[in-house]
Design a protein around this nucleic acid. Sequence first.
DNA 1: AATTGGTTCTGAACCGTTACGGTCCCCTAC
DNA 2: GTAGGGGACCGTAACGGTTCAGAACCAATT
Lengths: 362, 362
Amino acid sequence: MHVRRPATLASLAAELGVSRTTVSNAYNRPDQLSPELRRRVLETARRLGYPGPDPVARSLRTRKAGAVGLLLTENLSYAFRDPAALAFLEGVALACEGAGQGLHLVPVNPEREDITAVHRAGVDGFIVYSVPDDDPHLAAVLSRPVPTVVCDQPRVEGVDRVGIDDRAAIAQLAQRLITLGHRKVGVLCMRLARDRNDGFAAIDRQRTAHFHVQKARLAALNEAFSAAGVDWAGVPVVERFDHSQASGASAAAQLLDKHRDVTALICTSDILALGALAEAKRRALRVPQDLSITGFDGIADAERAGLTTVRQPMLDKGRAAGTLLLDTVDRGRPREITLPTELIVGSTSAQPRTAEERWFGP
Amino acid sequence: MHVRRPATLASLAAELGVSRTTVSNAYNRPDQLSPELRRRVLETARRLGYPGPDPVARSLRTRKAGAVGLLLTENLSYAFRDPAALAFLEGVALACEGAGQGLHLVPVNPEREDITAVHRAGVDGFIVYSVPDDDPHLAAVLSRPVPTVVCDQPRVEGVDRVGIDDRAAIAQLAQRLITLGHRKVGVLCMRLARDRNDGFAAIDRQRTAHFHVQKARLAALNEAFSAAGVDWAGVPVVERFDHSQASGASAAAQLLDKHRDVTALICTSDILALGALAEAKRRALRVPQDLSITGFDGIADAERAGLTTVRQPMLDKGRAAGTLLLDTVDRGRPREITLPTELIVGSTSAQPRTAEERWFGP
DNA sequence: AATTGGTTCTGAACCGTTACGGTCCCCTAC
DNA sequence: GTAGGGGACCGTAACGGTTCAGAACCAATT
């Protein structure tokens, strides 16, 4: 550890016999004082071990912290494990470093409601990524008098927003499955609300979901399959609180145990889909002959696995969020950026076998 | 964007007809005022849209920012691409969230010398990860009157440190190759200094390297192979500024073009090794029969590829750095933590073929 | 009646800077 | 000789809190 005598701008000024303003100018506005004096100031600073103006005091005065706050649904460390979140983070970082801004990761525990971290963060603005609409942290952010950008969340009055058209994106996927002939499908989705509910999610829970993205995707699936004559009430939807391949596998198991007749498993994330893929393999179900499986996100592992999925530009999303937040120019009315998505048809989806084939083989 | 009338603690106090102290206490020391008054304060705060004490002003007074600064060699966004750096980051994040501290990523451009970001960061301490010993950012950090932990760097007077025994770790690897019979080896390493030098690195450059880790590993290799009778001056070492598989591949190509007789390629990182592996494949060199290749780090991709490498606990490293920084208790004399490493013998190393075999096949 | 003790609230100092609006002085130009 | 201009530096007032030593008050004890 490294401790210095607390030299301040004032003590430096006293030592030099100049005003504090002058010392401040030596650091911030070199043109406001003679080069000679500036040299003396800096030299004396070195001698006294003065590290330059205190960042916090400066922030207080200038009302600028030089950093962007990032709020995630999950534990801080989770973000480093999920490829999609990671790409988002990378995008935000890109925007930040382009603007010379720091990136302040706000520590949040999704299971507790400790808001203090949000209140403590000395930042010029917040990016809020995919938290439930009733999240107290979100409320805390909005209460703070700094600009905010939300991402993968519902619109908030007067707040910039970045996202994709989740409904259209998954509707396209659904349409593909429908065209292929799938009518008996199941869905694996991520957590729908802040409470842990690992299991089937009835329509009511789907409708009252607090995670905007999941809710939108389920609603769009509902709409698409209903239009194709499928009774959505009969479509099993399994929810998982934790987002991991293991969760995907167990969810798939739970669903398949109860509904052996499904011909397609629609997963709202690639991670879940990869888990489902593993479970299918474990059960010796052939994909896509016996079971089609689809994901969402377009992460590298999904591509590697040949997953049918929807690719969304996570990195661009992060960058857009950062840019929006840092672009102070045309901050008039709230802005909204919707990024394009792309259906990726992989090798994990195909026509379902007919009943006959199911009994007698292909 | 979301702007509120600037209500302050003072204006709240005025509105309520109480002192600022009382309002402050309402937030920070509930036991210091009657529950009734506290209720009124909070209620009035809500009505006026007062978001609670300003974090920056609070930080100024309390001298606590509630955040840890993290300084990396590379661009901010790089950290999200390199698995090893990522694991480190995750470890730091883990420690931070355990202590309820924010994680402030300091934006740094390794090619420029803009130090202001370090001076601007309102943090309670710094973790500095693998920057060159002459890095001006490091100097800037050390000049600040806050505790610091360096990681994968040489000792700095009076500063806590976390690392591994690089020399011992790679010496073990070298010993293995020597035992297998390799005497004609080549080395691929990461950047040795702040200037870009994509190409062969002569002994002099190796010796004057500013990246501690690389320097230590090269020195240990030198020692080990010299002891085995190899003239280190004749061992080609190729350096790459950018750390990527592409770099590894091109470095391998450059080395093999000039030194067709090497039987083993020692890489100072798994990323480089994976690139070398790709290049070997491109050249139809069989690994390990025609060429042994080793890495360093023990990332997941390396394991998948069966790489012979040294595993180091990157996550633990990050966590240790965070813990060290946040543990204010026994901050007496500088502490040092050295983490264990483990030699992983994979399928990319084997006995070199004899000269005979080289000509006539195995 | 005086002392003690406990709550509840206040006043003033302080944290280390920067913004703003000067002042002062020297130099040039007419 | 003096008006005008510009460079160099300064004084004061915030910025928005926290902290600590009391003050005021009331009840209980001696």
